[in-house]
Design a protein around this nucleic acid. Structure first.
Lengths: 343, 343
DNA sequence: TTGAAAGCGCTACCAA
DNA sequence: TTGGTAGCGCTTTCAA
């Protein structure tokens, strides 16, 4: 007796999430009309009374459209995926990322920061691809051409990498940390320093930044006869004290500290050991944080110029609109020394 | 002549995103079988050769399932939504948030950080609801009972607020900033200080933290006869210099600086003016950042004890599994003074 | 062991 | 101006 099981069609099952069909029933119109009204479809004219009834029904039920259903139907989403960086990221970088996120949202994309855990490379890319993002903004390294292909194949119209190197098939915002080291090295050289230490953080995950910064110093000093000594340093007072304790043995007259935070750490340890800055050892940081201005002597630093979020958001938008266009490769990291009193 | 338009069924349209139907065609099986194989459905036994054919076809096509379609069919998602805080968030809080994000991912949820822009209160809630998250972790204030109702109605099985107050219908991780001020105030009082300044950052968006911290100091001093003076301060050297310049006029013998960063700013300005710390003025910060240990005198601070991400992730998971359970209200912010040399 | 088919919620085409 | 309806990609019940 199947006929007794036929559901009464105008009972908007209570306790359940309301759908556009529920709205339609309550307003006494078709689902199509509901869709037209709620999306302000301009191709179709709906009478004012009908509009009102639909709006009222939607409000009464607390109707909220189902994004997944909508994008399934549409065949594409407006999701811009920003996998959150796996590495501990400094204040400068994290400010940059949130500004970027904000700017992309302004362009009417849905920014989704997706924490991909453990999975690496292509597995991560596959996980991202499941969301069918229209664009992916990859802040990390470790993303190869294969991953880009996976994303493209899943319908991503643009993949943009933010990092030190370009990846085949993706747009690139090149942030060449090398430049930071180069600027610091050149500055110290100009100040007459010849035996230059470079702090290399021991914290895992920072190699992507620290190695090129070290390399940059080397490059700046190339042919000058000046020497470079890498100085492993953990972000703890003990580690800094240890390094400072046999500072004289290193025979260094200058040190580039990776960034301002390590600079503060090392400056304190050196001063506690009686090392005079800048007389005995010149010291320069990077990132131009406020804290550098508050140190005594005031900290020389490398100011890093990152593009505005808006600029990048526009690049993403352009890439999405014209997926066939050539990959845009842009050098976006400017490094300029801010000389203060520590060098 | 409709029959000439019938599509040849085994042409996996190239250039388009492969679907499970494409995989099925290539493997010579039905879509059902593909689903069984790729999801390892245990209720159904598929022969080994068939499994292999399906897997190979999927790999060859670069097939990635469509998350939206899947959750539409399933009727629910595993999305845990974490609206990113609209306010500029300090290093302590941001570390906490990313640890939390990580822990929730471990439990096999898809953590989505969603930047909701401008929209406030119920509008934001509606935007979040479109994603049909299984749970929402709201870090900001400004979310009322209405917003919670909207999310629940859209199928969210748990809404958890992280903030100073509980919201009807939502679980709450109470982070009572009041406690931070109270601890600082009590400490200064115990140190014999009687005229206590409290730095109130002028940066917008911080009121939610600064007001209760100020209130906490007031509460600690209540009935002691000690006085409290709010000190507006912007995070700039100029602002700090201005405040320090007429420091004697304030006649304060202690100051609670909101957090360690403002502490560093003000300490420097005061020292530049010749104010002796702690002799003339005791100074205490909050957050127990590394930089406090590097200041001279070493900075006394209020250490803030936040729960581990794992703890909270488990709370979320429990709430999702038992949506009918009573809202869990948990006081999670521990504040303890770390006395060092500045007080 | 496998396949056919219904249907999740939505939009857009076509007809009325 | 409005309604009927197909179909986006997927899973799952039922039948074979």
């Amino acid at each position: 007796m199947p006929y007794v099981m036929v559901q009464i069609p105008n009972t908007p099952t209570p306790g359940s999430v309301p759908t556009s069909a529920d709205v339609a029933r309550l307003a006494g119109v078709s689902r199509a009309t509901v869709s037209y009204v709620l999306n302000n479809t301009s191709a179709v004219r709906i009478s004012e009374p009908t509009r009102r009834r639909v709006h009222e029904a939607a409000k009464e039920l607390g109707y909220v459209p189902h994004a997944a259903a909508r994008s399934l139907r549409a065949g594409h989403s407006r999701i811009v995926l920003m996998p959150s960086p796996a590495i501990p990221v400094g204040p400068l970088h994290s400010r940059f990322l949130s500004e970027l996120q904000w700017a992309v949202s302004r362009l009417d994309y849905t920014v989704v920061q997706y924490g991909t855990l453990g999975l690496s490379g292509d597995d991560a890319a596959r996980a991202w691809a499941e969301l069918r993002p229209v664009a992916v903004l990859v802040p990390d390294t470790g993303t190869g051409p294969e991953a880009v292909a996976i994303l493209k194949r899943a319908g991503a119209r643009a993949v943009v990498t933010l990092g030190p190197e370009t990846v085949e098939g993706a747009h690139a915002l090149l942030m060449d940390q090398d430049e930071v080291g180069r600027a610091a090295g050149a500055h110290l050289l100009a100040r007459g320093r010849r035996r230059i230490g470079v702090v290399v953080p021991e914290e895992p995950g920072l190699e992507g930044f620290s190695r090129p910064r070290l390399g940059g110093v080397r490059r700046a000093l190339d042919g000058s006869g000046a020497t470079v000594a890498p100085l492993p340093l953990a972000y703890t007072e003990e580690s800094a004290a240890r390094l400072a304790a046999d500072w004289p043995a290193h025979g260094l007259d200058a040190v580039f500290t990776y960034n301002d935070e390590y600079a503060m750490l090392l400056m304190r340890a050196l001063q506690d050991e009686g090392v005079r800055i800048p007389e005995d050892t010149a010291l320069i940081g990077a990132d131009d944080l406020m804290l550098g201005r508050l140190l005594r002597p005031r900290l020389s630093t490398v100011h890093i110029d990152l593009p505005s979020g808006r600029t990048i958001a526009e690049l993403v938008d352009r890439a999405v609109r014209d997926p066939a266009g050539p990959p845009e490769i842009r050098e976006v990291l400017g490094a300029a020394v801010v000389p203060r009193d520590s060098t």
